[in-house]
């Protein structure tokens, strides 16, 4: 039964990928680049959903895990000339190791303590890059995935190549996450989240499953970090500010932290906000300082409004309302 379900799921992802392929051929460069950014956010947000929504651990420091992935990919590429695919694998592994270490500490902490610890990491870790010359200090180091292969044709642009890599990575990782969440591990996480005592009484190793969640989530975050630095081309401490961790969290909350199927909502919103802010600013003709701060203000306000009014995300909200309606009709 389980197998059947995941292969049906696979079909969905293949079809979705094909649609993306068609769309990618028909839109202009800017949209293609935004598509690549959306793919990065999808990967990053799904890692937060896995951790916060399913295993119930908050991480405010996912930016730091992205940084680990990005730096290790770039170092592997620049210093050891690793092939692109391998750099992504290295990014996943390096971040997963970092996540496992953090997870061991995290399994002993609850709610606010964990939040504060990861917050301290998000502030502290990127500055460590200045310590070691191999990371290139404030300027950072280049991460170049190379030009698209010639077999794809002459007019196949660099951004489209980013989009292809990003979309493929996003599809594969989301498919994996969806299946992990439906597996035994996913159920263990949810059990541990709802009631730790009951979960351990049913034979679940709660601490172990929390550490596993952190490790997997970190690995996916590492992939997101490598993808992010691919689209920017450079890895530097300033690419991973606290604001990045916050906007990823906002994306996860917008998607509904416990519904993976909403992940596109958060990712698209994060990419759309700067553009919407730009339109609003020009329409209203507001001052220059407000124009530069509008995207940040919108992200924060959205985060607060979502937590206040649709705390479990739009999809869950819709589902609950639907279920309530159905129950009423039955009566």
């Amino acid at each position: 039964m389980h197998k059947l379900k995941s292969s049906r799921n696979l079909g969905f992802f293949v079809v979705f990928g094909f649609i993306l392929f068609l769309v990618g051929n028909r839109v202009d460069e800017l949209r293609v680049y935004q598509g690549a950014t959306i793919a990065v956010y999808v990967v990053a947000i799904s890692s937060i959903i896995l951790l916060t929504g399913y295993s119930g651990q908050v991480s405010l420091g996912h930016g730091a895990l992205l940084a680990i992935g990005a730096y290790s990919a770039a170092v592997a590429r620049d210093n050891f000339h690793a092939p692109v695919v391998l750099t992504f694998v290295i990014a996943v592994l390096a971040a997963a190791i970092g996540g496992a270490l953090l997870g061991v500490a995290a399994a002993r902490l609850s709610g606010p303590y964990l939040a504060g610890t990861t917050l301290a990491l998000a502030i502290g870790l990127p500055s460590l890059a200045n310590q070691f010359p191999i990371f290139g200090g404030e300027q950072g180091i280049f991460f170049d995935v190379g030009v698209p292969p010639a077999s794809l044709g002459e007019d196949f642009t660099q951004y489209k190549w980013f989009f292809w890599i990003g979309a493929l990575a996003a599809l594969v990782s989301t498919w994996l996450v969806a299946n992990i969440l439906r597996s035994r591990y996913g159920r263990n996480w949810r059990a541990g989240r709802s009631n730790e005592t009951a979960a351990s009484l049913s034979g679940i190793n709660v601490a172990g499953s929390k550490i596993l969640a952190f490790t997997i989530s970190a690995g996916i975050a590492g992939l997101a970090g490598a993808l992010l630095s691919m689209t920017i081309g450079v890895v530097s401490p300033s690419a991973f500010p606290l604001a990045l961790s916050f906007s990823l969290l906002t994306g996860a909350v917008l998607s509904g932290v416990s519904t993976l199927s909403g992940v596109m909502i958060g990712a698209v919103t994060l990419v759309a906000i700067p553009e919407i802010a730009d339109v609003v600013a020009t329409r209203l003709g507001v001052s220059e300082t407000l124009t530069t701060n509008l995207p940040g203000l919108m992200v924060s306000s959205l985060l607060i409004l979502t937590v206040l009014f649709v705390p479990n995300g739009p999809i869950e909200q819709h589902r609950t309302r639907h279920a309530r309606k159905a129950a009423k009709e039955k009566n």
């Binding site: 916060t52 929504g53 119930g56 908050v58 405010l60 709610g111 606010p112 939040a115 989240r193 969290l249 909350v253 932290v257 416990s258 985060l303 607060i304 937590v307 206040l308 705390p311 479990n312 869950e316």
Partner: peptide, 11 residues
């Protein structure tokens, strides 16, 4: 809901 524990932190 699942977000109850983390909502104040996020907010």
């Amino acid at each position: 809901g699942p977000i109850a524990a983390v909502a104040p932190i996020i907010a």
